[in-house]
Design a protein around this nucleic acid. Structure first.
Length: 409
DNA sequence: AGCCTTTGACCAGCG
DNA sequence: TCGCTGGTCAAAGGC
């Protein structure tokens, strides 16, 4: 394309031999920052090398994994003792032994894996967080086209009740919202965002309360709004992973100095098959009017409804419903069995936690979750706004932000 | 005009 | 050491 590959390559090589800043390239982040009045010091520019090394924010120790089937919403985690370590005198899974990263803000690594997806997404499931230096890694793999029907006599309310009561139950409830989350073709930001980040202990309880609150008030259709996960992402790559049917898109947080990245796998039909977060946001979630960088990329700023109270959730365009209806598969659950898939809470939740106790706790996560939990999580994401360094655990389904950007649905 | 995605190539890790 | 693969870069083009 008129470029000299050799020259380009030499530039890359040169820059990569350095600290990552050698490029002298003004990133989009920098440009945006400059646009908003920030002036980035040279040292503050994105240094990709930092991704390969341990940063102060990135505790290498905090890398336990929790593999959760699609039937368990990530928010279910928040609603369990495992996710409520402090208030219950329990540590987050993997941290029960004390110093394993519990003292810093970074932290938790969750890995959600759809039942039966294990080998379908090599790398995505197993990409070695254990081996890298990121403080945490969240990996949400979503069954792309799973729809869920409550069996006769099994109500969502009942599911919720079980969930909130913390009772142990089979995974009879599939989070259809997550399962049916879609992304517009390759468009990244449409997906359901499942963000697992540092969960500050001081916030966990409030999150929990919020969850409880929302569960009782939010309609299932309230899901699916909000763009993004509240953060500003920029796609920087896309690749078809061997063994995976779906291409993987790579995103970086656009915020200055924020090194968070995420990978999203989307099926051809737009179904999200996986989301993987790397790193911890070192900045509060951008909010409208809070000095957040404006502009097309700021789809995140469409979360005003998620603001302070976090109780009002707008639903625009019925996107959620659309997504739900777009689900191509009906998974019927009968007595803990899904047609074609046999699920049990004790087996579907696989953990890689080093702490046996945590693992046991995670097992208890086989609780039911209704479809509204995703946006509840997104609310959490916004709820922690400015409070922590990205201490959120969000699930956002968005289809509007993209249209506001440049991706016609 | 600016921002973002696409895309092909390079790099690094791993077996 | 080599090949494979995932991750990343950055120019080009699109919106």
């Amino acid at each position: 394309m008129g470029i000299n590959p050799g020259a380009a390559a030499s530039v890359k090589r040169e820059s990569r031999n350095g600290d990552g800043n050698a490029r002298g390239i003004v990133s989009t982040v920098e440009r945006r920052a400059a646009k908003c009045g920030f002036k980035m010091k040279k040292s503050e520019r994105i240094n990709t090398a930092r991704f390969r090394t341990t940063s102060p924010l990135n505790s290498p120790s905090a890398t336990p994994f929790i593999i959760i089937p699609p039937g368990v919403s990530p928010t279910a985690l928040l609603d369990t003792p495992v996710m409520l370590p402090n208030s219950h005198g329990q540590r987050m899974g993997g941290y029960g032994d004390g110093d394993r990263g519990s003292s810093n803000s970074s932290g938790l690594s969750f890995r959600f894996k759809p039942y039966g997806y294990g080998d379908a997404l090599p790398g995505f499931c197993t990409s070695g967080n254990q081996g890298n230096d990121f403080d945490f890694e969240a990996n949400i793999l979503l069954d792309p086209a799973m729809d869920f029907q409550f069996p006769m006599g099994f109500s969502e309310e009942a599911a919720l009740e079980k969930c909130t009561s913390g009772s142990r139950t089979d995974v009879n409830v599939l989070d259809s919202m997550i399962a049916n989350a879609t992304c517009s073709s390759d468009s990244p930001s449409n997906p359901i965002y499942v963000q697992s980040e540092t969960i500050h202990e001081e916030n966990i309880e409030s999150h929990h309360h919020l969850l409880e609150e929302q569960k009782g008030t939010l309609p299932a259709t309230a899901i699916g709004r909000t763009s993004d996960d509240g953060y500003n992402w920029r796609k920087y790559g896309k690749k078809l992973i061997k063994g995976s049917k779906h291409p993987r898109s790579y995103y970086k947080c656009n915020h200055e100095n924020c090194l968070v990245k995420k990978k999203i796998e989307c099926a051809h039909d737009g179904q999200i098959t996986g989301i993987l977060y790397k790193g911890t946001h070192n900045h509060p979630q951008p909010q409208p009017g809070s000095g957040a960088p404006p502009g097309p990329a700021s789809s995140l700023y469409e979360m005003p409804e998620m603001g302070e109270g976090g109780n009002s959730v707008k639903v625009k365009g019925g996107s959620v419903q659309k997504n739900r209806e777009s689900g191509s598969k009906d998974i019927k659950v009968h007595d803990g069995k899904v047609d074609g898939l046999e699920r049990t809470s004790s087996t579907s939740v696989v953990t890689e936690l080093s702490d046996p106790l945590s693992a046991a706790q995670v097992k208890s996560l086989g609780t039911s979750e209704s479809t509204e939990t995703p946006e509840l999580s997104s609310i959490l994401a916004s709820h922690d706004d400015g409070v922590t360094q990205g201490s959120s655990f969000s699930v956002d389904v968005d289809d509007e932000s993209e249209s506001k950007r440049r991706y016609p649905v």
